[in-house]
Design a protein around this nucleic acid. Structure first.
Lengths: 136, 136
DNA sequence: TTTATATTTGTAATCATTACATTTATGTTT
DNA sequence: AAACATAAATGTAATGATTACAAATATAAA
């Protein structure tokens, strides 16, 4: 499903040279749809690539985002998260356990008032509250 | 329109003792609907209150938020902004000039799929792109 | 006036991110 | 293959927003 070749190809198609580090980082995002932070990604991958630097993770994610391969997710202070899912969806963050859930919504029906002549490039719908597990 | 008494009363109604600092900070948010950062608020008010500490601004805004008097707005990394507008509305941030615009949207028609038994306490709709001024 | 409590203040610590210079890897030319 | 140029990765130091914490000040109560 996500072979190294496929991943490298996707990276190439985004105009990025597929180095080992870049393949591993993108692979991690594709296989783990958990909206990880930079720190989390680094800690997971440093086992695989002992020489990995956190700066590389930062640079790589910034590059991926610039080239449209992933999106970033600013849902709470002091933590940028990353998401390789490219379909439009919303994010729910549980205030108690901190887990982030994806959800679908009827974005086609959304209507914005007073944004004529605005060039909208990104839409973020973030919900907060408590998840079913924490509600019990 | 926003007299010191009215402001003090609103703060009291939120269960907060209306000190000078608290009144000035809330007054600033009410009179300037510009989604300011902590730093901006501090720099504006320190003229008025020369002994003001930035810690007080942080503490006061946190308290206001906890008591539901204001909301915070996390639309970009490294900057929490605050908003005293209590009606539901979205925020558009221009990538070029950085200005944040309010807009209305049809939130009543919004439908979330897969969030049964989730307790939704806050909804944030953030758009990004370029504003008409920067599009020219 | 004492005493207790709440609020404000200033400094130091924390932590995510960025800047920058060095090292390593990759690709090209001769 | 060697020399060179370029790109990518690395490690350390700097930045900047936020928080922790203890001391000082203000407010309220006895």
């Amino acid at each position: 499903m996500f072979s190294a070749q496929n991943i490298g190809k996707k990276i190439s198609e985004a105009g990025i040279k597929p180095s080992l580090q870049r393949i591993k980082i993108y692979e991690f995002l594709l296989k783990n749809n958990i909206h990880p932070t930079v720190d989390f990604i680094y800690n997971q991958l440093v086992n695989d690539i002992p020489t990995l630097s956190k700066t590389t993770v930062y640079n790589t994610l910034k590059l991926f985002e610039k080239q449209g391969l992933i999106i970033n997710l600013i849902i709470d202070e002091n933590e940028i998260r990353y998401d390789a899912m490219k379909n439009i969806h919303g994010h729910f963050k549980c205030d108690k356990c901190g887990k982030i859930y994806d959800f679908e919504y009827n974005h086609m029906q959304l209507e914005f008032l007073g944004l004529n002549h605005f060039n909208i490039l990104k839409t973020e719908l973030n919900l907060k509250g408590t998840c079913p597990e924490c509600n019990q």
